[in-house]
Amino acid sequence: MFGKKKEQPQIDKEQLELIQNAQKRIKQKKRLYVHFVLFLIGSVFIIIANTVLNIGKDFKLLGKEWFLFAILIWLFFLIYHVFNVFITHKFMGKSWEKKQLDKLIIQQKTRIEQLKNELHKEAPLIAESERYNESLNKKEKTSELTIIVAAAENDAIGKDNKLIWHLSDDLKRFKSLTNGHHIIMGRKTFESFPKPLPNRTHVVITRQTDYQAPEGVIIVNSLEDAINVAKNDPQPYIIGGGEIYKQALLLADKIELTRVHENFEGDAFFPEIDASVWTETTNVFHTKDDKHDYEFSFLTYVRK
């Protein structure tokens, strides 16, 4: 109420600059239009003055009526004015172009800083993978860490912590491959199960220090700890979710991928597989049928 000043609407500086330049452009065109009209009126007046009023009738240049040279000189200035408006003085001008270039340079510098920050965030994860690989080099490797996942063409793997599709053969393959092995997963993936899967050792990664799980489920705080827990298993599997897959992709030896040949809306995604790191060794295609609503392929990748 009282004592409060009414806020004045603010115009973006860049928009204001565009408006000002547009106004200058309009003034340039108006002056050119006035020049053109005066040229037409003046030319008619000079011709009438010479031919009707006999002003300077006896004065000639190079055998021609003087008004012809007057009109040509005026026409020259008109052409020069047109050239000046549309060619020499550009809409925004050199100073505006320089400002835009400076802004582009600032944006590029900002983007570089963002990339540096992202790299800084990824550094601990990269360091973890390097430590893991170094430890493997120091001692003979006894297990093969495998990622197992079903992903759509757009890499969607789930929505609202649930599977997006139901493929009977894919579930059978998952059961066959993981049976008798350690399965490593994030907390949300574990909580998506109605109960622990039979004949498998569940290793759940969570930051919660007091997380409660059924008897037999192993709780750890990092992927590195989960791998250490499963070190005596010759074939432990990473089964999700999206963030765990992202971390495991730096450490895994193999990927067992079911590629569902459709695009789906999801909120969890599998990272893109880098062809320079992974080699496809198996590709088995399955068509639609009574038990499968979508075409899919069983793919196996091994690290190069």
Score class of each variant (00 low, 15 high):
K94L: 11
L171H: 11
L61P: 03
L167I: 15
D293L: 07
L32S: 07
Q212W: 06
Y211T: 05
G42F: 04
I244V: 03
E122W: 10
R200M: 05
F59P: 10
E243L: 01
K175W: 09
G93H: 11
I87S: 09
I79G: 01
N221W: 03
S297R: 04
P198L: 05
L171V: 08
F285R: 08
G266T: 06
K139M: 11
Y80P: 02
L16D: 06
A156P: 01
K162W: 09
H286I: 06
K304W: 13
K29C: 15
I73Y: 09
E262R: 10
E128R: 05
I106F: 13
L18D: 11
K188Y: 02
A151P: 00
K141M: 09
I218G: 01
R259Y: 12
S192P: 02
L257E: 06
R187L: 04
I126H: 14
V82Y: 02
G56Y: 08
R200A: 06
P236R: 04
V260D: 05
K30M: 10
I87D: 11
Y245N: 01
L40N: 13
H261A: 14
I157F: 03
K291F: 08
K90C: 07
L250Q: 04
L53T: 02
K116P: 07
V85H: 00
I11L: 11
L38Y: 07
K27C: 13
F67V: 15
F264L: 13
Y211N: 03
R25I: 04
T51I: 02
A152C: 08
N199D: 07
K103H: 09
R187C: 01
I87V: 06
L251Y: 04
F67E: 07
D155W: 11
S297G: 05
I47R: 12
T300H: 11
Q10P: 01
T110I: 05
R31Y: 14
K29D: 08
L250T: 01
A156C: 01
I148W: 00
P196R: 11
E262G: 13
E215P: 07
N228H: 14
N263D: 14
V37A: 13
N161H: 13
K175L: 09
T88N: 15
N133V: 15
N117H: 14
I47A: 13
Q212A: 10
Q235Y: 08
A70L: 07
I218N: 00
V149N: 02
G42L: 09
K5E: 07
K291W: 12
Y294M: 10
D169I: 14
L101G: 12
L145T: 04
R200E: 09
E224Y: 14
Y132S: 11
A226T: 06
F285A: 13
H286C: 01
I219C: 00
Q15N: 12
H182Q: 00
F270S: 09
Q28P: 14
K27S: 13
L38T: 08
M92R: 10
P234L: 04
W66R: 11
L163R: 04
K6R: 10
G42D: 07
E280R: 12
D12T: 05
L53N: 02
S43Q: 07
Q20V: 03
R25C: 03
K29I: 11
T282R: 10
D58W: 08
E134G: 15
W165C: 03
K138R: 08
